[in-house]
Design a protein around this nucleic acid. Sequence first.
DNA 1: GAATAATCTAGACAGTGTCTAAATTGGCGT
DNA 2: ACGCCAATTTAGACACTGTCTAGATTATTC
Lengths: 218, 218
Amino acid sequence: MPHPTADPPAAQKSAYHHGDLRRALLDAAEIELTESGVERFSLRGVAKRAGVSHGAPAHHFGDAGGLLTALAARGYARFIAAQDAREKAAADDPRAKLAASGLGYLDFAAANPALFRLMFASDRPDKSDPVLSAAADAAFEKLVRHIEAVSGRTPHTDKSAMSDVLAAWGVAHGLADLMIAGRLGRATFLDAMGDDARDRLFAEIILRAVPERSDGAP
Amino acid sequence: MPHPTADPPAAQKSAYHHGDLRRALLDAAEIELTESGVERFSLRGVAKRAGVSHGAPAHHFGDAGGLLTALAARGYARFIAAQDAREKAAADDPRAKLAASGLGYLDFAAANPALFRLMFASDRPDKSDPVLSAAADAAFEKLVRHIEAVSGRTPHTDKSAMSDVLAAWGVAHGLADLMIAGRLGRATFLDAMGDDARDRLFAEIILRAVPERSDGAP
DNA sequence: GAATAATCTAGACAGTGTCTAAATTGGCGT
DNA sequence: ACGCCAATTTAGACACTGTCTAGATTATTC
């Protein structure tokens, strides 16, 4: 007789009537998302995957948008983790850390293209949801701190530092989006490159966005 | 009794049985797209807008994907036109032309966000369609020629020139995608800027992607 | 143990994309 | 001018979707 709540190992799906749905639904939804994409995402398909009736998700997430909102929010945690992993392996230099963070951005997009699009290019998640917007803000603040470390100024008040934020975010995001759309790779030399050569190239391109400044004036 | 074909002014919808559907359907589809977005796009809604039965589009476009494919292809023509318009107004300098082209990229995205996403971030159009891929290639070749003019090398064979293509495309595309997602504007100073100040900032950021080189070595 | 709240099921409804058969129409040859 | 043919459009059907509702089942609490 396991506890009904807070029992990680006992969260097996073959419980009686309840399990910890919500997590099971989120997991099923992510599989559905990666297999069908955001555009062919089906709520009933998610319920079928979780082995539950088609009306079950409603009580946990309200409607399909609610599920996708929660899924996007959970995605930001892994998104930040992917960047952290790259940063940890990088040299102890602000610019190297920034470039590594950008490579983590690309790693995440490559590993979770459908989730990435759900997070950045879909109208279905409710952006006013507090937990989703908090997760998105955390990711943004991470970039802000990188730029602070590189430039010595805070983008919140310094205009040129905010320009660097825009520039760095723009390249990383653009390369990621073009990559998962399959546009980088045929007309370029990327396929012929090894992974590390590819990383070096992308890191160099990302660093172009925030040029080193010798003076201290804006 | 107007001609049934090739009669631009007489292409009124209140003809007998036929008009020039296909164009009417494409126009209706674009309205449907901008009002409902790619994700809530409805083929029956398009037919209703065109004042025609729900099965009518099938004979012209096969299925919904076919309509969206044709719509995306037509979008590329306007996409290129938006860039041309900016280039025409720019100074007679390769770098200025490149920056202007990037601003045209942003103009198009801002004016047609749903169409932009259909073209770049949707799986529904058939990318193997010859007319769509030709249109997309034309847009890409435009960028390639800009980089050639700036660097004096052709990206098709020169690796560093292709890096410039990646970098320039990346920033422009990333800024465009983030902009239409509504992410640029709250945490930045962009709203407080005038249009020309905004243009200057974006142009400067785009030009960071392709740095001026003094030497001639790769 | 009984009452109450939470959870899940099952059915219904309007709406979707695509398939099919039937109807309408224009153009063509004679 | 007429009739046939091919192209086009309509209308109905089907399976599927998301959401709503009432009802059944379970857990929790007094």
